[in-house]
Amino acid sequence: MSNSPIPVIVNGAGGKMGREVVKAVAGASDMTLIAAIDRNPDLIGKDIGEVAGIGEMEIPITNEMESMCAFAAQQKELPVMVDFTHPDGVYHNIRSAIAYGIRPVVGTTGMSAKQLKDIEEFAEKASTGCLIIPNFSIGMVLLQQAAIQASKYFDHVEIIELHHNQKADAPSGTAIQTAQLLAEMGKTFNPPEVKETEKIAGARGSLAEENIRIHSIRLPGLIAHQEVIFGAAGQIYTLRHDTSDRSCYMPGVLLSIRKVLQLKSMVYGLEKIL
């Protein structure tokens, strides 16, 4: 491995998560921020360091992703793109980055199963590392591992995820991933006791794999929260993870930036690289 710093592009740099990533990368001795991309017209041309609250960095925010990818591809060291943007554009962002030989680390959720499969095949063909991480929190990984253990003993489970009201996709990628992990246990949950009737469509939440229900809440004042609730005769077992500050994701983001350089294909989930 080279001792030179890892060149990093932050896509969605002006957003709440993007600004945290900028601060984390700026504080990491083995990384250097080379570009900040955001499509908010009010931020174009502004210095990303000032926007992130850490002082001038002489890196203006741009919305020219293709140009920044071409610039990054010319760097001596392999570059990484961290993406916290929007479900509408993340698929294109990942494809573009891989085409330029840039390793994507993606926290944006909302892609379809078909899009994920296409990215997996594209990264494999290009022998380029790509990390898709629904949740960068170590605490969430531990919650999911505890849920897998509990699912061996409980047949009834539902998931509640709570996020701020600026989140565009529902259910959250983390909740979907949690349901997928439980489904991999090879059992069907929540055997019916009665024939249910929804008087209002969606009252019972969305139906994920193996009959697991996911309920989504969107309110100002929330950041990111998840409960996995198991039930059995005479008892309830609740696992909950709460985010109080977005800085909790940054150790996972920095770890992912370092690890993606060692990969030659797509990996889904933080637990796969811990």
Rank of each mutant, 00 (worst) to 15 (best):
L78P: 02
N190A: 12
M140A: 10
I9H: 00
C130A: 14
P220Y: 11
E184K: 15
V51M: 08
E227F: 14
G110F: 00
A146G: 07
P41F: 08
A147M: 12
F154A: 10
T128S: 15
E271Q: 13
L143P: 03
R246Y: 14
S172N: 07
D38E: 06
I212C: 06
G221C: 12
R39P: 00
R218E: 10
Y249A: 06
A52W: 04
R218P: 02
A70Q: 12
Y91C: 04
D155Y: 13
M57I: 10
P192T: 09
A150C: 14
V51G: 00
R39A: 07
V10L: 04
L182G: 02
G252H: 01
I160P: 00
L78N: 08
P41V: 07
R213M: 10
M1H: 13
Q166E: 11
I59Q: 05
P191Q: 12
I212H: 02
Q235L: 12
T62W: 07
F154V: 10
M250N: 02
T85S: 13
I148G: 07
V105S: 04
M185Y: 05
H156N: 15
Q75G: 05
D83W: 02
E64G: 07
T197D: 08
G234K: 09
G139Q: 13
V157D: 01
A123G: 09
F84V: 04
Q145C: 10
Y100M: 08
E77C: 05
